[in-house]
Design a protein around this nucleic acid. Sequence first.
DNA 1: CGTACAGGTCTA
DNA 2: TATCTAGACCTGTACG
Length: 542
Amino acid sequence: MNRIVLVRRGEDVEVHELATVHRIAAPDLGGFVRDREAGPVRWIWDDTTRWYPALLAQGVRVARCTDLRLTHAVLRRTPFADQRLLAAGTTPGWDALQPVTTSEAALFPLADPADLLDPVAEHERQLATLAASPERRRLELLLAAESSGALVAAEMTSAGLPWRADLHERLLTDLLGPRPVAGHRPAVLERLAGQIRAALDAPSLNPDSPADVLRALQTAGLPVEDTRSWTLVQLEHPVVPPLLEYKKLSRLLTANGWSWLDTWVRDGRFRPWFLPGGVVTGRWASTGGGALSVPVQVRSAARADEGHRFVVADVAQLEPRVLAAMSGDLAMAEAARAADLYQGMVDAGAVATRAEAKVGILGAMYGGTRGESGRMMPRLTRRYPRAIGLVEEAARAGERGEVVHTLLGRGSPVPGGGPAADLGEPPEPTGSPQERDRRRRAWGRFTRNFVVQGTAAEWALCWLADLRNRLWQLGEGQLEDRPHLVFFLHDEVVVHTPEHLADVVADEVRLAAAGAGRLLFGDFPVDFPLDVAVVRSWAEAG
DNA sequence: CGTACAGGTCTA
DNA sequence: TATCTAGACCTGTACG
C-alpha cells in the first residue's frame, strides 16, 4: 500500500511519497489523485472535509484515506495508546481542529488553522503510537473505519438525498394551508390558535410561548407543571385537541416547513453535513437541516430518481446484539438467533413477555433502575450474566471516575471534562453530597451506555465501509451513476441505485452486515439480521 | 441588540 | 402504575 501525504502550501500541494517530496499546483491535484487511484494507495491528509469535497466536485473518488483529524481524536482518548508518543507542540492545534462545513467546494480557505499543522509529522507520531500499542490491531481497524466513514460522509453530502420539493410543498399546503407571507401564521395554525384562545378564555394568548400557555392552562384550573404533549394528552379539557394539533403542525412548520426547503433542498437534493466521530461514543453527528431527526411525516418527499430505487436497510435491535457479542454471552446470542431478539428471550423462558424483554434490556443498557426495568434486572442477570455483567462493570467503573472503552478501543471522556490524556488534576468536586452522588450515578449511566452504543457505532462503521466498496464495484462511471449511499443514521442506510441493480444492492447490504459482524466478533455466533426494503420513497420503508 | 438558556419535539 | 442513553434545532425570553 502506497501512502501519500498531501500538504497545503499556499497555492500548491506538497506531495510526500516514499521519502520523496514534490509540488503540484492545486488545480492539478484532481488529475494526480485520479492517476494514482489506479493502483493501491492510501491518501493521508489533515482532514477529509478540507480535501475531498473539491475532489468529488471534479468527479474524483478515492478508495482509502487516513483522516488525521479524526484519527488524532481517537488516539488522544484511547486507553490503548501511550500519550507521550503522540505529544507535540501542535497537539492542541490538532485537538481543536474543526471540520469544514461550507457549501463552497473551494480548496484552501484563507487563514485556515489547519495550515499551522504539519501532517507529515503528525502521521509519523500516530504510526509510532500505533506500533507501540498493546492493542495495535484493534486500533488500526478503528482508525481505518473512522477514516472510511469520513469518505462516506463527504460522498453523501456530495451526492445528496434525492428530495422532491414539489411533493414536500404539497404536503405542507395540505396540512397547513398555503404558504403565508413572512411574519404570519399559516391559515390552519391561525384557526387553531383562535380555538385555543377561545377554549382557555385567553384572547391574547400566544400559543408559541410555553410560559404563556402554561399560565393559561393553570388559570383554567388544570393541574399541570409543563405543556408537553405527553402531559396534555392526560387531561380532559376542550383545549387539548386543538392545542395538540397546533403543536404538531407548528413543529412541522418550524422544523421542516417552507424555509427548511428553501435552505436545505437545492436541485432536487437534501445535502446535510454528516460529522463522523461527532458524538463522543463514536456515533456520527450532523449539521444543517436536522439530518438526524428527519420526521417520518416528511420522508415521503424523499423519492428516488426516475428509473432508480432506494434500498433502505436497518438492523433489528443492533445494540443488544452487539452487547451479546462483545460480552461473549452465548445465552443472549442464542436469543439473538431469532429475527426478533426480544421474542427469542421469551421463547428461551428468560422473561414472560416481549414487552418485559424490551424494557429489561433497554434498562440494562441505559441504566434504568426504577419501575419495570429495575424489576427485570435480577432475572436478566441470572440468565445473561456476561452481558449484564459487562454493562454493570462499565457503570461501576464510570462511577469510580475511570475511563471505559469500546471493543476497538475508543475511550470515554473523563468525568471532569477534557480528554483522559490531559494529566492535570481532576477538578475539585462541588455541590452537596447528594448532588455529587447524583452526578456520579449519572456518569455511570453514561459509561454503561458508552461501551454498547460505541461498539454498535463501530459495527455500523465497518458495515458502511464494506458496503461503500461493494457498491462501487457494482456500476460504472461517476459515483452518482453507480449505486451509492445517500443517508446513514446510526443503524440505517439508504442507497440510491439504478432500478435494475436494486436486488443486487439488497444482497450486498446483507453481505456487508455479515462481514462487519465477522470483522468485529470473529466466529462468535451472533446474527445481525436486516430489514431491507426496495422502494421508490423513503416513507415506504420500515 | 446580540448571546445564552429553557422548553419543547423530532431521531435512533 | 414514574424518563433511562446519544443528538439537532426551533421559538421565546432573560440577561448584559
